[in-house]
Design a protein around this nucleic acid. Sequence first.
DNA 1: TGCTGGTTTTGACAATAGTCAAAAAATAAC
DNA 2: GTTATTTTTTGACTATTGTCAAAACCAGCA
Lengths: 187, 187
Amino acid sequence: MQQLLAHLKTFYQLSAEAELVLKDCFEEIILAKNEFLVKEGKVCRHLYFLQQGALRGFYNLDGKEITHWFGFENDFVTSFHSFTTQQPSVENIQLMEGCILWAISKDTLTGLFNRYHEIERLVRIAYEKYYIRLEERYVNAHFKTAGERYESLLLHTPHIVERVPLGFISSYLGISQETLSRVRGRL
Amino acid sequence: MQQLLAHLKTFYQLSAEAELVLKDCFEEIILAKNEFLVKEGKVCRHLYFLQQGALRGFYNLDGKEITHWFGFENDFVTSFHSFTTQQPSVENIQLMEGCILWAISKDTLTGLFNRYHEIERLVRIAYEKYYIRLEERYVNAHFKTAGERYESLLLHTPHIVERVPLGFISSYLGISQETLSRVRGRL
DNA sequence: TGCTGGTTTTGACAATAGTCAAAAAATAAC
DNA sequence: GTTATTTTTTGACTATTGTCAAAACCAGCA
């Protein structure tokens, strides 16, 4: 909990008052490697703060698992579309390592929005950050060759390469595992 | 102006009070085809509502123009990264048709956030929508073949195909103009 | 009607990436 | 330390897409 609050204070200017309020709104969750945080077809009703561990978001396409994002320490994670719209999730979230998470329900969060302008602001700012991140990722992914994408990953997010099996990384980069292996051989 | 307010009322539950406030915060801008709304290297200080017309966001990569998004009627547009961080823009926004826009400055918007919780909420909700849209676009773009991407464009956003020159569309899909032409030939 | 500039298509060939199958390497299990 | 099991790499071949150059198409307009 301390880590979540510290993160919010550092990156979102959380006030002492809001801190007191938030303290009681999150619930600790501990899950083991390979367990699912969200399953496709189910509505995702929580937003999670990832204190410790690593996980991935993926969906199934023609029997293949397509990993399209990763989460690590200090990330807020959820099945975004499902959490926002309260429609069944199209994606799965699975742990790549044992994780410690803090969960807040959509209802609790909505209640906080109504009572505390500051907390809605905090989320608005989080959206800005995550939007920019996604936009960068989009441009990177879409307009570069397999080799360039991997090099960009090494440069900008080396922790992904260090902690994630290559099978997930190739999927994340939108290339086959074999091509990734060859790209790595060339470097 | 009516159109902007109507859009906000319909899709963002804008209250009558907030409507009165917002009315005076936007400035009308009329620009001709091919003019630039944002130029790379300059800080983008405004958020725009596109009342009429069509435009594109693009950046330069090895001397080539990469179009990575389009804007149409009722879209909020800006050089997102630049507007948020107030760093120089890496992208250009150019009009594909003559446009009518309504501009609000970052400072004005920030002032509104401080005074009206409801307006910050409105923007928070806008972020949600735009984030989901981008996420869908990301998945579509990244994990499908050239043909599938074009078909998906036809299916989900046919107005793009109708109003945008093929050269921009191919760039948007991340494929060459020739490949797009051949894909179209096959359908 | 016939230029003119731009856009779109076609053709030939090269480069890139995917697929399937098997080998090698790395982990985990006993 | 020796098996299993999983992950990663390699090889041969195929499919997809890109590149360059030329042709066709399509306005707008003298």
